[in-house]
Nucleic acid binder design. Structure first.
Lengths: 166, 166
DNA sequence: TATTGTTATACTCTATAACTATA
DNA sequence: TATAGTTATAGAGTATAACAATA
């Protein structure tokens, strides 16, 4: 049974909707990421922040928007990362109210090890899918994320339109 | 560009992993379901419980396992549903420690209205995908859920392997 | 006065331990 | 003693309001 025939089979009004499935799997994924990151002493949000900062430094407000975390909550998050020397905060000379947040060298190095942990979780989650199917899934999810961008945390939105749909 | 070519494009090591994407989208989906169910006075968990009960009555322990909610937490959940007359609890004559939980007639009716709300959220989430792509996505997600079944809440796991009980 | 970052507070969700009634 | 359900309590996560520094 290939992927297309399977789609037709699934099209007969299923009990669990796609959205519910995404919600449930999202919870599972989050739990696994949290477990995988725990030895490193950080949580999924810290990783998201680091990933977003890897793309370039920004103000706290900008970062908060990028990873869809309340700017209030981001304060403690950055305190954690800063106390471990993974990020650095400095005043913006142009507007001294702003804090420019940047990932440190140590932070970049940590991110390499973290990438491996992320890949492991991904591999466990997608164990039942072959590489091609994973690619299909990834493409579909990226398009959903792009569509619901206002709601969804996308650390690296620049990749979103990289596939140039249509 | 069809769905397969798009998959190849996405296969170039993306910034956000599939698992992270699922986690982020899961959060978005959960938020939207919560918002959609709020007028009905219930939360996603209540809906999950009702959906699971629609497939047949069980003990609280069985229900807790089915929807991956702690049996401790399930107590309050069922209190909510029972106080609204959506479910009924009765003692199991065979083992008086057990409570048999069943969906009520009113609960089934409520579920019909709720299904519409769920469909609406699904439609909003999957707005960027055509019906065929939605089917493909659904099939892939079902397989992931089947694989990670121990971790994931699956109100109606019987649909997972394509078996159609009737 | 408006904005950036911060602190304090409260509310929800979740996990743990202890209690009851049955077996 | 062990199990099903319940209750109480503490922890993490999240949202809101008020405050200090700067524009």
């Amino acid at each position: 049974m290939n992927i297309l025939e399977q789609a037709d089979a699934a099209e007969t009004r299923p009990c669990t909707s796609v959205g519910q499935l995404i919600a449930a799997l999202g919870k599972t994924a989050m739990r696994r990421f949290a477990a995988a990151l725990e030895p490193a002493g950080i949580k999924p949000r810290h990783l998201n922040a680091l990933l977003s900062l890897r793309a370039g430094e920004t103000s706290q407000q900008g970062l908060a928007e990028a990873i869809k975390v309340d700017s209030v909550q981001l304060v403690g998050l950055l305190n954690d990362l800063e106390s471990e020397g993974l990020v650095e905060r400095r005043r913006d000379p142009a507007d001294r109210r702003r804090h420019i947040v940047a990932i440190s060298c140590k932070g970049e190095q940590r991110l390499v090890a973290l990438d491996a942990a992320v890949d492991e979780v991904d591999d466990g989650l997608l164990a039942g899918l072959d590489p091609h199917e994973r690619g299909v899934l990834h493409g579909l999810l990226l398009r959903i994320a792009a569509n619901a961008d206002g709601d969804t945390a996308t650390p690296c939105p620049s990749e979103t339109d990289g596939a140039s749909p249509d």
